[in-house]
Design a protein around this nucleic acid. Sequence first.
DNA 1: GGGAAGATTTCCT
DNA 2: GGAAATCTTCCCG
Length: 202
Amino acid sequence: MIYQPMPIEFYQQPTLDLAKALLGCLLVKESPEGAASGYIVETEAYMGAGDRAAHSFGNRRTKRTEIMFASAGHVYTFMMHTHTLVNVVSGLTNIPEAILIRAVEPCDGLQLIKSRRHRVKQAVNRTNGPGKLTEALNITQEDYGRLLTEAPIYIAAGFVPDQVESGPRVGIDNTGDARFYPWRYWISGNPYVSKTRKIKEC
DNA sequence: GGGAAGATTTCCT
DNA sequence: GGAAATCTTCCCG
């Protein structure tokens, strides 16, 4: 491993605190062709049973959401159309909370990231979205259920952000009041934060 | 066993 | 700004 992973205790803080604490941390994925990593610059918290936007709303327990009920520090990946999205499981065991990683700033493996995202010309557009960064770092369904405290996928200390902002989450327009909860966090002014999509008003 | 929906991205007009 | 891409899971017959 090229970095020292965060201890398991790091993941055992309250979910909203962890969502903020993850900003500036380094997400690392080691693959046969080499390691790629990026600083986390944007996250979204999903607060389990009481959060209508969460897959685990109402303690819905399925093959897909099963890992959300596990202890904090596990990897929750799922497919969205043609893309993989990655979450950090948080909360106590049987409390199905998780944090979606929405954007990273590339650090290691720039050539790997470039080749995996060869269709994209602008560097900034290679990792500024949840489905983009998984392709850039080669995070797949094979990582589902893995622990973030050891290779090949883990999170290490990075830098402490100057300023952090929060606001409504993205892409969950049909979830009632849950769409207004300010559980999206990002590093102020960072160019790799994903573009804010217009929230539908009715 | 079929059909629908989804925490997205990309290409085309 | 809109639609297609194209996969898995879940729910309902």
